[in-house]
């Protein structure tokens, strides 16, 4: 007995050290690029190429933010991104909730319909975007806000549907049944009873749809050019730069990542469901 106790104590003490090292290493790995980007964004251009590098600028400046937003049209991209992402998010959450309710409560179309929607999530975007580009050019949706809103609605629908599908299935039916028995129509049972109860789930699904739209690059790259371009596509201007625009690129990145990170961290309780399309309850 006396021999066992110290051994066990030693084991317990040794475990956290490995844990702390691993976590510490990983935290540094996660934070370091973010810090360096922030550092670059407030660093005067003269400090770019010094050896050793400037770890923190002595005279922080906001000139890069100004240039990124106005000279490189970052502000226009920001506004476009807001309009497009918000619209697509609302549509996706709305249509997604409608469909998910029908799938969850009425088993509409059986497994085939729900799996068909899900499979859309895994289509490689390159396969969709080429023909969509041709169609959009034909019908005048190329480089329009509406065009990208529709595209983003469709591309976030599978996740919205499946997140809400899982949410409704996890919700007891009894309230809606009571409403139906009381003489409500099915629509009323859905809209007045089920939707208010599912509100937290709908908000979570909307948050993930918004983040997906906000960070999307590929569709925006191909379906827009000078009018409806979103924030991520503005970074094209900084490709292949030779030193002059590091600060602008970094400043624009900082501006663009704040909203999605804030939303994501706020909704982190639902993150597991969001990442696994509701397959796993967090």
């Amino acid at each position: 007995m006396a021999a066992v106790a110290p051994a066990r104590r030693r084991k317990r003490r040794s475990l956290p050290i490995g844990r702390i090292l691993l976590l510490g290493f990983f935290l540094v790995f996660v934070l370091w690029p973010l810090y360096w980007m922030f550092n670059t964004s407030i660093k005067p251009s003269d400090d770019y190429l010094t050896v050793p590098p400037v770890w923190f600028p002595a005279e922080p400046t906001l000139v890069h933010y100004e240039a990124a937003l106005f000279t490189y049209r970052g502000l226009d991209g920001l506004i476009n991104s807001l309009i497009i992402s918000l619209s697509a998010t609302v549509l996706s959450a709305l249509f997604g909730t409608l469909m998910a309710y029908s799938l969850a409560r009425y088993n509409t179309g059986g497994r085939h319909l729900s799996f068909w929607v899900l499979s859309q999530r895994f289509l490689p975007p390159i396969g969709i975007v080429l023909p969509v580009f041709l169609i959009y050019r034909g019908v005048g949706l190329y480089d329009t806000h509406i065009g990208l809103i529709i595209a983003y609605t469709v591309f976030t629908l599978p996740v919205s549907v499946w997140m809400m599908f899982a949410y409704f299935r996890g919700m007891p039916k009894s309230m809606e049944e009571a409403a139906l028995v009381d003489g409500c129509t099915r629509w009323e049972a859905f809209w007045r009873v089920a939707v208010p109860l599912a509100a937290p789930g709908i908000v979570a699904a909307a948050v993930f749809a918004f983040i997906a739209c906000w960070t999307e690059f590929f569709f925006a790259l191909i379906l827009t050019s000078r009018t409806a371009f979103t924030l991520p596509t503005v970074f094209r201007a900084f490709i292949g730069f030779q030193g002059a625009q590091y600060g602008e690129a970094a400043a624009l990145a900082i501006v663009s990542l704040v909203p999605s990170i804030a939303l994501g961290v706020l909704a982190q309780r639902h993150l597991v469901r969001g990442l696994t399309l509701g397959a796993v309850r967090g």
């Binding site: 990983f26 935290l27 996660v30 934070l31 370091w32 690029p33 973010l34 360096w36 980007m37 670059t40 770019y48 190429l49 050793p52 590098p53 983040i211 906000w214 960070t215 999307e216 690059f217 924030l231 991520p232 970074f235 900084f238 030193g243 590091y246 690129a249 970094a250 990145a253 663009s256 990542l257 999605s260 990170i261 939303l263 994501g264 961290v265 982190q268 993150l271 990442l275």
Partner: peptide, 29 residues
């Protein structure tokens, strides 16, 4: 936990940009 999940909410474009800033010669440290 909140810090570790941050990369999930960043556009891959920005991730590429961030690593470019870190790695590209002669600017990156």
């Amino acid at each position: 936990m909140s810090i570790l999940i941050v990369p999930l909410f960043i556009s891959p474009v920005i991730v590429g940009q961030a690593w470019t800033l870190l790695l590209q010669r002669p600017f990156g440290p």
